[in-house]
Amino acid sequence: MSIGHTLLGLLESGPRHGYDLKRAFDEKFGQDRPLHYGQVYSTMSRLLKHGLVEVDGIETGGGPERKRYAITEAGVTDVQRWLATPEKPEEYLQSTLYTKVVLALLTHRDAAGILDIQRAEHLRSMRVLTDRKRKGDLADQLICDHALFHLEADLRWLELTTARLDKLRAEVAA
């Protein structure tokens, strides 16, 4: 996720102090990983340098100096461009699980057992997420769903692989 673009986007609704930006970010997107203030500071300096934001005013008083940032015309265009550019779908072509299964087969270990253990682990995670989803608000639900769908996809792969284990064993042995 591009933190720069996200902060720019948050500025579009109006000028904010750096600390406000961090709070707004954490509230909306940072459930799992809150932003360090240093991260905000360095990102804002980069944006200033590129002319995407400007300093709208400086408050001095008790405590550290507080700059208020505002988005520039170029900043708005940049956010627009970012939003309109599709994300490259992840391809998951390098899979640890696949490697584990093939290795198990090559070394005549219990590949099905490995798959089952993984399956149980996946489902356990799904249960936790489901539980969190039931108790959380809409934001929680959306985030958990995203994770659940990915886990489900993994689980389906696990099921499919289990069903095709004999075939795979024959191919690996060949």
């Binding site: 799904m126 249960r127 489900e152």
Partner: peptide, 9 residues
């Protein structure tokens, strides 16, 4: 469906 099964204990 795994997502349905996730409601189980």
């Amino acid at each position: 469906e795994a997502r349905v099964a996730a409601y189980s204990d």
